[in-house]
C-alpha cells in the first residue's frame, strides 16, 4: 500500500472528522448549559442538508416559482433556519423539562428525531438524493504536492476548522463567552448578577443546532442527501463525545478530528472494521479512562 493511499485516506478521514468535530462541539456546548443530550442533533444536520437541496432543486418543482437558492446563500440560510427551529423547540418544549430527570430531554429530542426523519422519508428517497449545487469555483481538484485532492472537500475541511476554532475562541476568550461559561459553572449565581440565563440557554441551543445545520449544508455536496444521514452519524458522534468527555470545548473538537482520522485510516488497514472502530475505541476508553480523555464527570 502506497503512502499516497494512506495520505489520501487520512485526508478523507479528516473530512469526516470535521463533521464529527462540528457536531460534537454543538452537543458539548448544549450539554454544558442545558445538561441534556440533544438526540435531534443528527436530524438538525439532515435538515441543514435538505434545506440546501430543496433550495437548489425543488423550489420550482414544488412552488412553481422560478428560483434557486445556491450553495453560498444556503450556507447562511440553512444554519439560521435550523437554529430558529432549535429555538422554537427549546422555548416550547425543552424549557418545561429542565426540572425533571435529564433523560426526559433525551427522550423528547428522540421523538423529534423520529418526526423529522419520518417527514422527510415520505418525500425523499432513503437511499439518498445527490445535491447538484456545488459551486463552480470549488469543482475540480487541487494539487497538494503529494496527491490530488477534490477542491470542495479541502474547502469543507478548512471552512469547518475555521468555524470550530472561532467558536472555541468566542467561548474561551471573549467577554460574552466568559458570561456563557459563568452560566455553565453556576446558573443561579450568574442570574443573580443580572444576566439573562434563560435567554442564554435558548440562544445556546439555537446556536448548537445551527452548527449542526451548517455541517449538513457542507456535507450535502459530498454525501447524497438522505433522511437517514443524521441518525447514522449521531450515534458515532455520541461515541466521540463519550471518548472525549464533554467537559472541554477544545476536547470535543480535537476528539472529533482525531476519530475521523482514525476511521479514515481503518478504511485502509482493515475496511470491514471502519464502521465500528470508534465504538471499540470507546470500549477501551471506558475500560482505562472512564471519564473520557478530556472529561470531568458532571
Amino acid at each position: 500500500m502506497s503512502m499516497t493511499v494512506v495520505l489520501s485516506q487520512a485526508l478523507l478521514g479528516l473530512n469526516v472528522g470535521v463533521f464529527y468535530a462540528m457536531l460534537s462541539l454543538g452537543l458539548a456546548v448544549i450539554f454544558g448549559l442545558l445538561n441534556i443530550i440533544n438526540f435531534a442533533h443528527g436530524a438538525m444536520y439532515m435538515l441543514g442538508a435538505f434545506i440546501a437541496l430543496i433550495g437548489y432543486s425543488f423550489i420550482e418543482r414544488w412552488f412553481g416559482i422560478s428560483m434557486e437558492i445556491g450553495f453560498w446563500p444556503s450556507l447562511i440560510l440553512a444554519p439560521l433556519l435550523v437554529g430558529a427551529l432549535g429555538i422554537l423547540i427549546e422555548r416550547t418544549m425543552l424549557q418545561r423539562l429542565y426540572k425533571l430527570d435529564h433523560i426526559y430531554g433525551l427522550l423528547l429530542t428522540f421523538g423529534i428525531t423520529l418526526i423529522l426523519q419520518g417527514l422527510f422519508a415520505n418525500y425523499f428517497n432513503v437511499s439518498g438524493t445527490p445535491y447538484p449545487g456545488q459551486p463552480e469555483s470549488l469543482s475540480g481538484v487541487v494539487n497538494l504536492g503529494f496527491m490530488y485532492f477534490p477542491t470542495y472537500r479541502l474547502f469543507a475541511i478548512v471552512f469547518s476548522l475555521v468555524v470550530c476554532f472561532a467558536t472555541w475562541y468566542f467561548i474561551e476568550h471573549t467577554k460574552l463567552g466568559s458570561r456563557l461559561r459563568a452560566g455553565v459553572e453556576n446558573p443561579e449565581l450568574t442570574q443573580a448578577f443580572g444576566l439573562n440565563v434563560p435567554l442564554m440557554i435558548t440562544l445556546t441551543f439555537g446556536f448548537g443546532c445551527g452548527l449542526a445545520g451548517l455541517a449538513g449544508v457542507l456535507a450535502a455536496p459530498i454525501y447524497s442527501v438522505s433522511p437517514l444521514m443524521g441518525a447514522d452519524l449521531i450515534i458515532v458522534v455520541f461515541a466521540v463525545v463519550v471518548i472525549g468527555g464533554m467537559g472541554s470545548i477544545m476536547g470535543a473538537i480535537l476528539s472529533g478530528l482525531a476519530l475521523g482520522l482514525v476511521e479514515g485510516l481503518t478504511k485502509v488497514i482493515y475496511p470491514p472494521a471502519a464502521s465500528t472502530v470508534i465504538f471499540f475505541l470507546m470500549v477501551l476508553v471506558l475500560l482505562f479512562r472512564p471519564a473520557g480523555l478530556f472529561g470531568k464527570e458532571k
Binding site: 427522550l107 421523538g111 423520529l114 418526526i115 419520518g118 415520505n122
Partner: peptide, 16 residues
C-alpha cells in the same frame, strides 16, 4: 413513513 411521524409525536406527547 407516517408511522414514524406518529410514533415520534406520541413520544413527544408522552414526555411533555
Amino acid at each position: 413513513s407516517w408511522v414514524q411521524v406518529i410514533l415520534g409525536t406520541i413520544f413527544v406527547i408522552c414526555v411533555m
